[in-house]
Design a protein around this nucleic acid. Sequence first.
DNA 1: TCTGGGGTCCTAGGACCC
DNA 2: TCTGGGGTCCTAGGACCC
Length: 424
Amino acid sequence: MPYEGASILHADLDAFYASVEQHLDPTLRGRPIAVGGNVVLAASYEARACGVHSGMPGWRAKLLCPDLRFVGGHFREYQRLGDAVIEVLRDFTPWVERVSIDEAFLDVAGSVHLFGAPAAIAATIRGRVRDELGLPVSVGVATTKHLAKVASQVAKPDGIVVVDRGAERAFLDPLPVELIWGVGAATRERLHGAGIRTVGELAASSPSTLQRLLGTAIGTKLGFLAANEDQRSVEGGRRAKSMGAQAALGRRAVSRTLLWSTFAFVADRVAPRLRAARRAGRTVTVRVRFVGMRSVTRSITLPWPVSTTTTITEVAVGLAQAALADHPGEREVTLLALSVSNLVDESSLQLELPVLDDDPHRPGTEAGSARWAVDRAVDTVRERFGRAAVGYAPVVFREDGGVPDEFRELAEADARDAPPPDAR
DNA sequence: TCTGGGGTCCTAGGACCC
DNA sequence: TCTGGGGTCCTAGGACCC
C-alpha cells in the first residue's frame, strides 16, 4: 500500500559557499563573510543580517557591513561537497532530482518501510550532512514539490518544516507572496499594488484578476501554486535547452578588437561544451550591455546547427556589430554575452550529405569540415593536457576583473544534464 | 564610483503558409 | 477586388531562479 502522507522533501544547503568557507576555516565561523570580491557571490547569515546579499557590488556590501571579510572562494570544494550531499540523499531513495549545486528534491514514499517516516528521514539527512560534511542544510517536507520548497525556505537557516497532508492551507495562507516560486520583485510589486500581500489573498483572487495583472501564463501558474494544485513529480535529468557564456568587461570602448577577442574567448567556453555534449544549435543570441545596465539582444536562427568555435565567434561578432549599429550613441560596453539555443543532437547532423558549396559555417562543406577537424583536435589535446594547453589564435581577451575559471566551471556544472533516475 | 555567470520561461508582433 | 482563421517560426525584451 503506497505511503499516503507528505513524502516530498526539498533539501537546501544554507548559504552554501559561505558555509563551506566557514567549515574549511573555523576562524570564519560566526563572522560576517562574503565569497567574491567585486561582487558578492554568497554571503553568510551573519553578513545577511546587515543586508548583504549575493549579486551586490562588493563596495556596497563593505559599506553596509564594515566587519565583512571577503574570502577567496574554494570553487572546487563547493563542487565536491555539493556532490557529496547529493550522494547522502541517494542513500535514502533513487528518486533525487537535483535542482542546482546546493539543492534537490527527493520522493521518499517508497523508503518509509526502510528508514521511517519522511520527517524522520529529513532529520537523519540533516544530521548526516552536518556530521559527515560539516554543513547546515534545511529541509522542507510536504505533499508537493512546490510546497516542500516553500517549507525549506521557511525552515532556513538550519531547520526543518513539515507540512502534513491537510495542513497545507493553514501553512500557506499567512506567508508573503514572494515565497511563491516565480514571484520576484516585479511581480511582488504588481501584486502589492492590487492589495495582494499574502499567499491566502493570492489564492482567493479570481483567475481573471491574476491574468489581467500578470498575463495569462504567469497569472494561471501563480493561481495554481497559491491554490496548491501543483502536482509535478520528482524527476531526473532534463536536457539543457541552451548553452551560453558571458564576460563582464568593466567599461570598455567599442572596437573591432574588443569584439573579436571577447567573443573568441566566450565562444571558446560555449562551443567545447556543446561538442562535449554532442549537441549543436541553430540559434545564436548575443547580448550587449552598455553603461547603466541598458542592454540589447540580437539573435539569428541559422539554416543549420553550429558548434564550431570559429563559426560561433563569427556569427556572434556579426550580431554584436548589428546591435551596436542600431545604438550609435553607445560608445562603451560593460558586458558581452553569447548563447546558443535550438539545440539538436549531433547524430542528426551526421546524416547530412556532404554539400558542394563552400560556406564554412555549414557542416559537410570542405571548409566546414576543416573547422570541425580543428575543434576536435583542440578538444582532444585539452582532454589530455588541460584547457591552457592549446587555444585559438584570437583569444587575447584578458580576464582582469573577471571571475576565475573555476567559478565558470562550477556554474557550467550546475547547468549540466543531471543523470536520469536510477529506476523507473 | 552601479552590479557575476549560467540558465528557464513568457510575451508580443511580424512573416509566412495553407 | 478584397479577404478569414489557424498554425508555426522567428526576433527582442523582460522576469525570474540559483
